[in-house]
Computed example of a mutant assay.
Amino acid sequence: MNKKKSQKLYLGWDVGGAHTKLSVIKPNSSSFHIYRCHLWESLDLLSKLVNSVCSKYNKRFIIINVITMSGEMSDIFKSRDQGVKDILNIFKSRGDENYVFSSKKPFFFKPKAITNTKSVSSMNWLATAKFLETCVNNAIAVDIGSTTTDIIIIKNGVCKNMGYDDFSRLSRSELIYTGILRTPLFAVTNQVINSKHRFPVIPEYFSNMSDIYRIMSDIDSRKDYSNSCDHRGKTYMNSLVRFARSLGFDYQPQHERKLKNLAKEIKLIQKSFIMEKIIATMENNFLKKEKINLIGLGIGSFLVREICHKTKLAYKDFNTFYNGNANKLFLPSDIAPAYSISMLLKFKNEQN
């Protein structure tokens, strides 16, 4: 066998409904990627992506795919159960070595061994938790993505989350449907007040939170990977136009300062909402005297950092658990579940 072909390549896949995140772990290097892949449009998009990535590497490496997901809830599937099966079938159709992350020990299974898809469905948050169990003792990890926020509790080196599926996690505020790109403004607030004036927010998909953070210069344009609501450019000016439309008027240059102030208020509303959930989680799981870190993950990790600054909590970046080159567009914190499963399986195989 060719020497290079004898080397193993770990591909960690986190298949979401809107985006698929990929961790590529080579023997001596790594890379991290986020692909726009709208499952609700066609499952062929995921199939083409998987084939393209695997074909790129299969002549040089033994490919080991490791899969977690949340995209099974996409409305292209008749049920979550069918969604898990259809997503896994895309990987099974190839001749690569495939493993699925499950909530059941020993956590990694061949796809054909999965008899209960509930142990796989939307378990990407748990993949991150299992990785963090190997890194920290007491911490709350907050993964703020494009659409959702995951709160993960690690106490004495063990994940203490009470919820597992979406329903139970939502009811316990361990899963919050708010993110910094795709979340529509009206899901954050129905009005914003500035200088004693009330501005109702129209409940229509005219703009989303990416416009707010674009106006606030909080997101790197290279990481701004979601579509705009009107499918026009993701510029500062276009965001002002979309934001004004959500408030019921057409943008004019004299509105710029007002809109920037209103954007600041909406950001504060979302940040305060997330902060309240974090503080409640902390109070419910830790004593005041216990030292804990708040770990920031996802494209919205900057909000976690800001929350720590306001509350005087200790902030820890997820990327401190990565020893590779940090001068990359996307880092492990941007794709934590995909990175976590690729590293966990690699560690496990190297120990055997």
Rank of each mutant, 00 (worst) to 15 (best):
P253L: 04
I307S: 09
T128N: 08
T149H: 05
E350G: 05
G83F: 03
D150P: 07
I292C: 13
K155A: 04
T235G: 02
R232K: 11
Y205C: 07
N65F: 05
F167M: 08
S122K: 05
D220A: 04
K130V: 08
S6H: 06
L287T: 14
C54I: 14
R232W: 01
S55N: 15
D166I: 11
L329P: 08
Q254C: 03
D14R: 07
K346S: 15
C135E: 10
R80Y: 01
K5E: 13
I193Y: 02
L170G: 11
L262T: 13
L175R: 08
W40L: 04
Q82M: 11
K277H: 13
D165H: 11
K312F: 09
T320R: 00
S74K: 08
I278N: 05
L329D: 12
S119Q: 10
N98T: 15
M123R: 13
S70V: 07
V24N: 02
K105P: 09
I151R: 02
R169W: 01
N137R: 10
N28V: 07
K291D: 08
N208A: 10
I64Y: 01
S42E: 07
G145H: 03
G163I: 06
S146N: 03
M162E: 15
R80N: 11
I152P: 12
L329M: 11
L185G: 12
S333N: 03
F32C: 07
N227K: 06
V158Q: 09
D334Q: 01
K260W: 00
E276G: 13
A244C: 10
C54S: 11
I212R: 00
K196Y: 03
V158D: 02
S42V: 13
K26H: 05
E97L: 14
Q7K: 09
R198A: 11
F273W: 02
Q270E: 07
E276Q: 12
D334T: 11
H33W: 00
K56I: 12
V188Q: 05
G179P: 03
I215G: 03
F318I: 12
N285T: 14
P200V: 03
K48C: 13
F101D: 10
T235N: 01
I269Q: 01
I202P: 06
I87H: 10
I307M: 15
F286R: 09
K264N: 06
K291P: 03
A263P: 02
A336M: 01
Y164Q: 13
L268C: 05
N124A: 08
L175E: 07
D334N: 14
E41G: 03
